[in-house]
Amino acid sequence: MADWNPGAYLQYTDERSRPFGELVARVPGTPATVVDLGCGPGHLTAVLRARWPEARVTGVDSSPAMIEQARASDPGTEYVLADLATDRHTADVVTSNAALQWVPGHRDLLPALADRAARTFAFQVPGNHDAPSHLLLREVAARAPYAEVVGAVERRATADPDEYLEILARPGWTVDAWETTYTHVLQGPDPVLRWISATGAQPVLHALEAADPALRARFEAEYGAALREAYPERPYGTPLAFRRVFAVATRTP
């Protein structure tokens, strides 16, 4: 996959940031150090600063474009280019917002990631892999001529709260796991297409673009029409239901 596009990702900053604010609000205590895994373009550092103004924050991301954007917009914070699965930063609190679903086998990594936190490990991942937006992505991508380029589109499934609880609930830890479905009201033309084009559809779109920009444009037209039918515009905007799964694992005294 080509690199991420920070500008496209930041189109819906408020909607994408809200779950992270609700995640860190459930983290107890006042940490001195925080590591944010999958920090993206650095826009969530403000959420961490508002929660813990005195903490030293380190952002980690595997995207050069995202790290470059983060360093430019927030030069006072340390941002590190590294793979989330192999990075070894430790802190009082380790957080991750909508990033671990991109890490192969992320369930198996969770205990080790939690162990890097002296106090609390907290993360949020999308739980909408079977929503119409993703079902249609897989369905349209499986049609000719797109399938010849992109192959089978992975169902990038995350776990339910009870599974994350089972993984993280070990001796010496307490775990709070839950889910929330947000109904975002998006504005403008083809808002669901613009939303998913910056995130879940990126691998498909990049593959098509690399093969033939005209093929990507054709796919976006076909996929966009399917999304408009699945998510019809209302007088007040286009509602998008988005399920997210949260877990906060805290060491017991």
Rank of each mutant, 00 (worst) to 15 (best):
W102Q: 03
R56I: 09
P31V: 08
M66W: 04
G42K: 07
A117E: 03
A207F: 01
P203F: 05
P213R: 05
I67Q: 01
A25W: 05
P126Q: 05
T158I: 15
V140K: 00
H106P: 04
L110E: 08
T238F: 02
D3I: 10
E229V: 15
V125I: 13
P232K: 12
Y223T: 12
L135Y: 05
M1I: 09
L81H: 05
R234L: 09
R143E: 12
L186V: 02
T86W: 01
W4F: 14
L208G: 08
D115E: 14
Q202T: 15
V34N: 02
D87L: 06
A152G: 13
Q101A: 09
S62G: 15
H89E: 08
T158D: 14
T30W: 05
A225F: 07
L84H: 04
V35W: 04
E222M: 11
T183M: 00
D108A: 15
D61C: 06
W195G: 05
A117C: 10
L84T: 12
D160R: 14
L168T: 01
M1Q: 05
P104I: 06
V192R: 02
T13M: 15
E22Y: 01
P64C: 12
L215G: 02
T45A: 14
R251P: 02
R234Q: 14
Q124N: 10
A142G: 03
P64H: 10
G105R: 01
V57R: 01
S73C: 01
D74N: 14
R156V: 10
G151Q: 00
T250N: 08
T158S: 14
Q101L: 13
P75Y: 12
E15I: 07
E222S: 12
D108E: 13
V93P: 00
R155N: 09
S197P: 14
T95L: 04
E139G: 00
H129G: 02
P19C: 05
T33D: 02
G151L: 01
D74Y: 12
I196K: 14
A2W: 04
L215D: 07
T13C: 12
Y146K: 07
P239F: 00
G76D: 07
R194V: 08
A217H: 11
F242M: 06
D92E: 12
T58N: 09
R18W: 07
T199C: 11
G224W: 10
T238L: 00
R88Y: 04
A91G: 04
E209V: 01
F219K: 08
R228Q: 04
A214K: 15
P191L: 10
A118E: 15
L215F: 12
V175Q: 03
G38P: 03
G21R: 05
D61W: 08
A214S: 15
L227K: 00
F246S: 03
P6Q: 11
Y9P: 10
A32W: 12
Y146G: 09
N97H: 12
G200Q: 06
E148Y: 00
D61V: 06
A50M: 12
L109F: 05
G237T: 02
R194W: 09
L137M: 07
E78K: 13
T58Q: 11
Y164C: 11
E229H: 12
E54Q: 15
E139Y: 08
